[in-house]
Structure formats: structure tokens, C-alpha cells
Amino acid sequence: MARVRDDMGDTRWGRLQRWLREGDDSLDRAMIAVWDESAEPEPEPVFTVPPARPEQKKKNQKHTAKLEKLLRVFSVIAAVLLCVGIIGILLHTTALLPSFGREDNPVHNEVPRRYIEKGMNEDTGAVNIVAGMILDYRAFDTLGESNVLFVAVCTVMILLRLQAGDPDERLGSDTRDRLIEPHSDPILQVIARVLIPLILIFGAYVILNGHISPGGGFSGGAIMGAALILHMLAFGEKQTARFFSYRTYRAVSVCALGFYALAKAYSFFTGANHLPSIITIGTPGRIFSAGLIPYLNIAVGLVVCCTMYALFSLFRKGEL
């Protein structure tokens, strides 16, 4: 059997058979170079110049430098052309679109009319119509949005959280580097001691008044997260870890997201089935009015606050 194959080895049929049965890749290697990475945006031949003989090396280096310079010039020109092209096409399109700032544009149709005219008094009870829109009329989007943040934190945790037994754990020692360790700076600490409570209170105000004045869970949560980040920068991660750890993050986001999903599930379900809902809109303008909106704002605010701190902390030290 083996002898027969030897005889056939060089014929075309034999090669085909060998390729079929053994996965012989002599046929393939040439093709791979052409195809396998064919979709590289810019296959740069510059970096793959084959090792040359010494007398050629100098020439090659000069050649490479020249080529690189040419390539750089070319890429700048390509960038500018592309940029101008995109801008040109879009500007041309915009010129044909409904014009700016007019009240008879198709965008200003019956939908915003209902949001404005019925939003506060009948539908949502929120004085801030934008808050009423994102947390009541189009609450499904916002539920998805909170989960975008959640999935982002999960992915960042997968990527950056140090694991025992990771192959590159040794490489993660950069996180314990002294560059990362905060210097305890008395000026920063004194100012932080004054500022942090103020920032936290302001964040809480923005969250709680989200349905009455501009603001809401996302911005307020980010403000409160900034206070936590400032605390970590000023007093060091050990101090912050005393009240905020992975367990805190987990508990807060599980409760807040779970509450959010359940509350919205209830309101979607009653809405779709035309059941009476126990949620009332209350007196517009009060803190506890507008049905679920303040509670949802608090939930969103907590999620965002923890998310922002968690993201920063993961980037900073690879741990939560």
C-alpha cells in the first residue's frame, strides 16, 4: 500500500489524493499567504522585509525608511481624502433634509405633542418630560441601556480582573507597581474630605430630582461614582475597599437591576393586558410622584454609580 502511494506520489492525482486524505498542506502554503489574511486593512510589507545579507542590509534599511515615509504620507492623504469624502456626502444629504430649528419638521409630529401635552398631567406625572419619556414611554430602551452598562462591566471584569492561575498572572504585577499606589497627599486629602460629601449630596439631589429638574439616574449616578473615585485617589484603595468591594458591587447591582427588571416587567405586563396598575402618578412636582420614575431613577443611579467606580477600579488595579 505504502509502495503504491510512493509511486503515485508525484503524479497530480497522487497529490490530490494525499491532499484529500492526509491534509498535506504543501499545496496550501502558497495560497494561505495570499488569502488567509486577505482582509487586513493595510497589509504593510514594510515590516516583513526578509532578513538580508549584511551588504544589502544598509541599502534595505534606507529603502525601508523611504518606504515607510512614503506610506505615512500616503496614509495622511488617504485619511484627509476619506474624511473630506464622508463629510461631503453627509453634508450633501443634510442639505436636502428638513431644515434646522423649524417647527413644521416631520420630527415634531404627534408623538412629542402627546409627550408634552399629556405627559405630566395624565401619562407619567413627570415634570421633566425627557425623564418621563425615557423611564415611562420608552422604558424598554432604557432597561436595555442599563443592561449595556452591566454587560460592559462583566466584560471588563473578564478582561482585567486578575485570576489565580491565569497564564499571564505574572504579567499582571504591573498593578502592584508603585506607579499605581497613590501618594498620600495632605492637600488632596483635606480638599477631598470637604468635597466628597458635597459631591455625594449633589449626586443624590440630581438623582432624586430626576423627574422634576434636569438630571436623573445616569448623570447623578456618574456624579456619585466620581465621588467614590476621588475617595480612592485621595485616600488609597485600602480605605475605599473598607466600604466598597466586589461583594458590594454585586449586591447593589443585583438588587438594583433585579428591581428594575421586575418593576418594568410588572408595568409592561399590566400595560399590554390593559389591567389596572397599582402605580399612580401622584401630584406632579413632588419628590414621590410620577409613579415608578423616582424609584427607577434611584435604581439606575445606584447601578451607574457602582459601574463607574467598578470600571475605574478595574482599570486602575485590576481588582474590585
Binding site: 409627550y115 401619562d123 414611554y137 420608552r138 422604558a139 424598554f140 409592561f268 400595560g271
Partner: peptide, 11 residues
């Protein structure tokens, strides 16, 4: 409908 609002107003 995802909520208490009919066609073009809600999700």
C-alpha cells in the same frame, strides 16, 4: 405594547 401607551408613543 411594552407599557401603558398605544402604538407610536411607547415601545
Amino acid at each position: 405594547p411594552m407599557g401603558h401607551f398605544p402604538a407610536p408613543f411607547g415601545n
